[in-house]
Design a protein around this nucleic acid. Sequence first.
DNA 1: TCCTAAGGTTACGAATTGGTACCTACTGGC
DNA 2: GCCAGTAGGTACCAATTCGTAACCTTAGGA
Lengths: 132, 132
Amino acid sequence: MNTAVSRNEAEPRKESVSCPMDFILRMLMGPWTTYILYNLKTHGPQRFGELKRRVSGISAKMLTERLRTLEGAGLLRRDYEATIPPKVTYSLTKRGHELDDVLGRLAEVGMRWEAEDAAQRALRAMELKAAE
Amino acid sequence: MNTAVSRNEAEPRKESVSCPMDFILRMLMGPWTTYILYNLKTHGPQRFGELKRRVSGISAKMLTERLRTLEGAGLLRRDYEATIPPKVTYSLTKRGHELDDVLGRLAEVGMRWEAEDAAQRALRAMELKAAE
DNA sequence: TCCTAAGGTTACGAATTGGTACCTACTGGC
DNA sequence: GCCAGTAGGTACCAATTCGTAACCTTAGGA
């Protein structure tokens, strides 16, 4: 989280309340992280350049750093072939796939809220029109 | 997302892949956010000072900012009584409670991983001893 | 008269973050 | 010869972030 994010993900923050989901959220929270996981999940294993093109706007530095972090957390695997030019393929590990379910539910909740908000906005717009 | 974290949560990042869980993760990812939600969930509605004492280490500024963000997202409610001294109570909204399930699962996965890692470490330690 | 308490807000400053530009090494195409 | 593409690494620079300290209100207590 990290937090955003913006804290060192290894530092356990002195353990005030001991929230078990903190680590995992701190992992997911990193910028771009969900985009990367989402892409790997839906498009399968991909090479660095492919991923960079899909997650448009990300810098190579960021992508590298995120991939290293996710690899370190065991969420994805990095296969390096020392050909010329080199070929590096990233794919989700078993652990990475274990997040599919949770992330799916999270997405579900997010989409429901989005839909509810849209409905609310539409309702309010209609009320405004009716009031004219 | 924190996030990061570290991005403005309102900015939709130009929508490259349109990941539906991005918004919600960007919300949860903020530093301290899970601690706050966890506390409100387990200890019920609380006043500002109480919360600050429980989430030890957080600064008043951070707590205020996080609470405002969560309130803006509709995850918690802020009840202000203009007594002297003022009394402000925070509690989870219906939406806030909708996260209970997902966060519970996330915590479950996190704890399973932790346990697995601990088992791995124990195994390796035993192997080291056996190799002596 | 000064201090405490509540729940903040504001200004300042240091640390982190993430983008840009440039570097590697090697091959293929023009 | 020069440029592109592959997968990065490194240095620098600007912006953001978060903590600290100070300040606000008002009432009551020493």
